[in-house]
Design a protein around this nucleic acid. Structure first.
Lengths: 249, 249
DNA sequence: CTTGACACAGAACTAATGTTCTGTTATAGT
DNA sequence: ACTATAACAGAACATTAGTTCTGTGTCAAG
């Protein structure tokens, strides 16, 4: 067994778990469950593995998607490609392939599901959409998105009309959204107001049983909804992109 | 009995599922669950996905480990032939390097030169800087930019304060600009108004010797400047990016 | 001797996920 | 018209797997 360059500072069990993660993914084709790691490492308790996984996550060696089965992935810092002198060509190839995967992952290709208009409900990714139609995709650098965003189910909408101007969003803008049925205070959401039969983008605040929908434009007044059940959250807005014409037409 | 692995005989849904499998693994880092596939394909029932997965398994396109979450792996990449064991380690390396180059070229790394405030002139990439700090860069997919934008001299600014709200641009937004001293009608520009000593983002129109600066927000009134020489164009705005905070769960 | 940290075990609980069953619709063949 | 079958939907069910809680033993510092 070769020694790891970056092994310093890591306990034997942390190293063992990292090795298991790498080997399992390579051999089996998908990441191990916590109980799989138990078997491979000889640790008898799931909580102990979880204990170490938390450490490895905060140390930045792995990323986890909470609540997802086998939702673990190794993160490979770019500068860490130094390999032991005994490295074979095969492992070089593997390393390069890994790097490709890494850089490919630097771009997220997000489907544009449709348009968002004040008068109609928001298209959500549960309905049918063509994942690979090049005309209906936007490419976004992963570095622009929040750190832990997997991008798995993000989707985008094109804004139609001037009805979202109080959200500082204009006709033609692209909003990138994450599916959600609820939101935390301060997050911008797309909501369907049952009373008004209208879709709108607002900052969401739940304040003692009452929903406050705050326009992004600070000069405009918020909407108050006393019955939260009439506020149907369609998703959280995580990014807005506006492309401007550089040539007059 | 049907013929085995006839690539032509795949139904659209089978193809779509295979594509989802490949893309999901690539983007997320682990295989999708059946319900993930439902979301990505628009199929509303897990049994239907399972139905197709069985077909794909007996056709030999995928392998499944029964009873384990996300226990699916692609047997071979879609349009690609199987890895030749001896044929092409070197060519494989070459190919992956090619891929890296390709994907790297798909991202533009644009320097954030500073902030744009109403009260101060715009920092422009005129003279002294040549070293870009990695912390002050934004990555933008080339596909988002206008047709043949080289990206060579693009720069970005972070908006500070609420003074640009009439341009539908908010505090914290990133505006991506192209250096320019003049503009065509209809382009959004950053201008320094000598009379007012102020920077602003407006749509530019030159109309019979008079400059009209039109706010993006259609509810607001334009500014008219009779002497075009007092309107100092700092650059054209080609993109606006707004990142909204999403709290981790 | 206590205290507290760390590493660990085991069980219970909850959520995620795969599997199966029953039924519906549309269509081609007889 | 009748039947068989592919393609689907929805729900119930059974496992799998993530999470959390309580407790145990060690060891070093106070």
């Amino acid at each position: 067994m070769m020694a790891r360059k970056r092994a310093k500072g890591l306990s034997p069990r942390q190293i063992k778990i990292l090795e298991v993660l790498e080997r399992y993914q390579e051999q089996v084709g998908y990441p191990p469950s916590i109980r799989d790691i138990c078997d491979k490492t000889g640790i008898t308790s799931t909580s102990v593995v979880n204990y170490y996984l938390k450490q490895l996550e905060t140390s930045g060696f792995i990323e986890r998607d909470g609540g997802v089965s086998r939702g673990i992935r190794l993160v490979k810092p770019l500068g860490e490609t130094v390999e032991a002198p005994t490295a074979s060509l095969a492992s070089q190839v593997k390393k390069t392939v890994e790097n490709v995967r890494q850089t490919v992952e630097d771009i997220l290709r997000i489907p544009v599901l449709g348009r968002i208009v004040a008068g109609s409900p928001v298209p959500v990714p549960s309905s049918d959409f063509s994942l690979y139609d090049a005309d209906t995709m936007v490419d976004v650098a992963r570095s622009l998105l929040p750190a832990r965003e997997t991008g798995a189910n993000l989707f985008a909408l094109e804004v139609q009309g001037d009805s979202m101007i109080d959200a500082m969003v204009n006709d033609g803008d692209i909003v990138i959204m994450k599916p959600a049925q609820e939101a935390r205070n301060g997050e911008m959401v797309a909501v369907w107001l049952e009373g008004k039969d209208e879709t709108t983008l607002k900052y969401f605040y739940l304040e003692n049983g009452r929903v406050r929908l705050q326009p992004a434009n600070p000069t405009m007044q918020p909407i108050y909804v006393n019955d939260p059940s009439t506020v149907k959250i369609q998703g959280k807005v995580i990014m807005v992109i506006r492309q401007l014409q550089t040539m007059a037409s």
